[in-house]
Design a protein around this nucleic acid. Structure first.
Length: 238
DNA sequence: CCCTGATTCGC
DNA sequence: GCGAATCAGG
């Protein structure tokens, strides 16, 4: 599986949104958690609460893999991608993951989506920002923080090329704005993946219909909810 | 044990 | 560039 533009875009989005590498790998499919991390680093985006790097002092002795590997007990069988059946359901995470407010260095030179400054002041700068990853691996936002994640509306006419004629009239990742519904249709990486694109329910990132899907009232325990959410596009076929 | 991200290094 | 192997903290 290669890193297409779409897959990289999904990786970027989810990574910056605070999704774990495992979740991203599960969403993308065909790649391991390590691959996601490695790619993220190669893309220049990193800096995220790392359990290992939490307490870093100044400089530690570099543990290098020398040419003379120490005799290690044969504790092999590290299964990565196929081993543990980590639930791919990133959608129904009960607790939202706090997104660390980080200054993106934007190391990529030709990066098209560089957002150096935030023109719109955050109405509630003191409140902890809650960002969770919704179905399809895009960011689920609280109704309050509607600051434009994609501030400049991309010049539509200068888009280099349509990925495929199938989605020519559909809402692609580049077409997203805070005016259109961001509900994903299909799965990222699939040829006809697109977004809903209907006008949003004002104050929400989705249209009225998908707001009904995204924000569901908490029902008492034991109450059976007739249709299991069934995120979008149906179960993944893989 | 499980999870996490970081790093190294052979390919 | 890619990602498995490995490391290391929670």
């Amino acid at each position: 599986m290669s890193w297409t533009d779409e897959r990289i875009a999904t990786l970027r989005k989810m990574w910056e949104g605070g999704a774990t590498a495992s979740e991203i790998a599960a969403e993308l499919g065909g790649v391991s958690r390590n691959a996601v991390i490695g790619k993220a680093h190669r893309l220049g985006l990193k800096a995220r609460p790392s359990p290992v790097k939490a307490n870093e002092k100044k400089k530690a002795a570099a543990p290098k893999k020398s040419v003379t590997p120490a005799p290690k007990p044969a504790t092999e069988a590290r299964s990565e991608s196929g081993g543990r059946g980590t639930a791919p359901a990133a959608a129904e995470r009960p607790a939202a993951r706090p997104a660390p407010a980080q200054a993106s260095p934007a190391a990529s030179g030709g990066g098209a989506s560089s957002t150096p400054s935030q023109p719109v002041p955050n109405p509630a700068p003191d409140l902890p920002k809650i960002v969770s990853v919704g179905p399809g691996g895009f960011l689920r936002q609280g109704p309050g923080d509607q600051q434009a994640p994609i501030p400049p509306a991309p010049p539509r006419r200068l888009v280099p090329a349509k990925p495929s004629p199938e989605i020519a009239d559909k809402t692609s990742l580049l077409d997203l704005s805070d005016k259109v519904c961001r509900w994903p249709m299909g799965h990222p990486g699939e040829p006809d993946f697109h977004f809903c694109g209907e006008p949003v329910n004002p104050g929400f990132p989705y249209c009225v219909e998908h707001c009904g899907r995204a924000y569901q009232a908490q029902l008492p325990r034991g109450v059976r909810r007739p249709p299991p959410p069934l995120p979008f596009g149906g179960p993944r076929v893989r």
